[in-house]
Design a protein around this nucleic acid. Structure first.
Lengths: 247, 247
DNA sequence: CGATAGTTTGATATCCTTCAAAACCTGTGG
DNA sequence: CCACAGGTTTTGAAGGATATCAAACTATCG
């Protein structure tokens, strides 16, 4: 199996074999987590960087009255907390949404990597900027789109991101999320998520069951929700996405 | 006048006089903008970094049907687009909300600065991480708080951020935003913003008129909206904020 | 003082939530 | 292989929050 982080970074830069080795070297210490466990909690002071290899995780915050807002999904190839070296405390938690494999990278190892390969440093910086860009797009999604387009847009994004790391198959991918998880992501009730999924299904835009989502017509889905992939900054993959949109 | 960027960074690090000089040196090329102008548009390939010295600006996106979502406010001391060196194209625009003074910093100058002072590099990196953290909190705000708390939370945040750069006076500060601007920020109609402000006024939580916002009781405002300042990562200013909250 | 942008208010429609119950899975133990 | 338990999905009915539309009012500025 190809390292999903390497695969993702190749969307940005053409990496040397030596750098690819360095990325593999990051995955020395792999841990298994069960759905529902936390990698790290709000207020913690992390000592390591996590790299998600398999499964899904999310960044989230819990409000005092108990409600949860998911502010990011982590899919294979996603890193968390390069910022460790700079910020004192986590301002949010990271939890695992499905069973998952996670590599723990000691911060010294990470720092050494930065020193050894400026090219990798740039590529990793790129990936944090993309994360930030996704946050902005999610804000647009929540602020300006109603439930139907909001969920459609999220699915389109997930398709692109998973496709980028080779985690899609025939326009389908694993989506191990409950409707409550989805609701906590897009700012809706699980009831309303349910009714919205029903409508998307009825219009043959999605086919979701048993933790697997198929998008029978990615192009139409993207058209309907006005999905502009520019915010993912796939400099070297723009053509692939264009092609999918035309399908 | 003290350089507002220096003032902000001092919330994180204790800077040397040489570094303070370097920051002043960034402000060599100041331009004046009028309310409504854009610093940079979506799709542009920026060649310089902007530092806002006076006035307000925002990051925003326009959807195809014409609606606008503001995804960040820039206040004095805020930088935009350090990412310039990495990303090819802007995925959003930056516009000026009031008349403003903006320093243009050529990217070479910025790169040189990074090389000269690792401490400043760290501090500037910190500020980008705080920007990202603010995005996450805005997402929580939109996803999980109703209009009343949403707007109150925004005002509390703005008070802390402006206080940090010395732009508040007696719990009041300039807020040169229309109600439509506020609506585009928090995902509400200007009509509903209006009704919500009315309620906040009636409860003596705000006093807003002629572009100036006074918060008669910052502590109570923060309490009501459950404002946790941790996401601003004011390592060296935590005590000040605590004090304000108890007022 | 008139023009223009911004604010305020009212009436009505829509989207989404809440509450509650039924139906459906999926895994487990007998 | 069946029965059962717990979580998840689905559906209905009713209420609440926010949007929409339209008009009146108020600042502000040349």
């Amino acid at each position: 199996m190809v390292n999903p982080l390497a695969r993702k970074l190749e969307s940005f830069a053409d990496l040397l074999p030596a750098d690819l080795d360095r990325l593999d070297n990051l995955c020395a210490d792999v841990h298994h987590y069960k759905a529902g466990e936390d990698l790290i909690k709000e207020g913690d002071r992390p000592e390591e960087v996590f790299l998600l290899l398999k499964g899904w995780a999310c960044r989230y915050k819990i409000l005092p009255e108990g409600s949860r807002q998911i502010v990011a999904y982590l899919v294979p190839g996603d890193l968390c907390d390069i910022q460790i070296f700079i910020l004192k405390e986590m301002d949010h938690a990271i939890g695992v949404l499905s069973d998952a494999q996670v590599a723990s990278i000691p911060k010294q190892k990470m720092l050494r990597l930065f020193g050894e390969s400026p090219e990798l440093f740039r590529a990793l910086w790129w990936s944090t900027l993309v994360d930030e860009s996704i946050l902005r797009e999610w804000l647009v999604n929540m602020g300006r789109r109603e439930a139907y387009h909001r969920i459609a847009h999220l699915f389109a994004e997930l398709w692109v991101r998973l496709n980028m790391v080779g985690a899609t198959d025939n326009n389908a991918f694993d989506l191990p999320l409950t409707q409550a998880d989805l609701g906590d992501t897009v700012g809706l009730t699980s009831v309303h998520v349910n009714r919205t999924l029903k409508r998307l299904r009825a219009e043959r835009l999605i086919d979701l069951s048993r933790g697997r989502l198929r998008l029978p017509d990615v192009g139409r889905l993207m058209e309907i929700t006005d999905f502009q992939p520019n915010y993912l900054h796939l400099e070297r993959r723009a053509a692939d996405v264009q092609k999918a949109m035309r399908l």
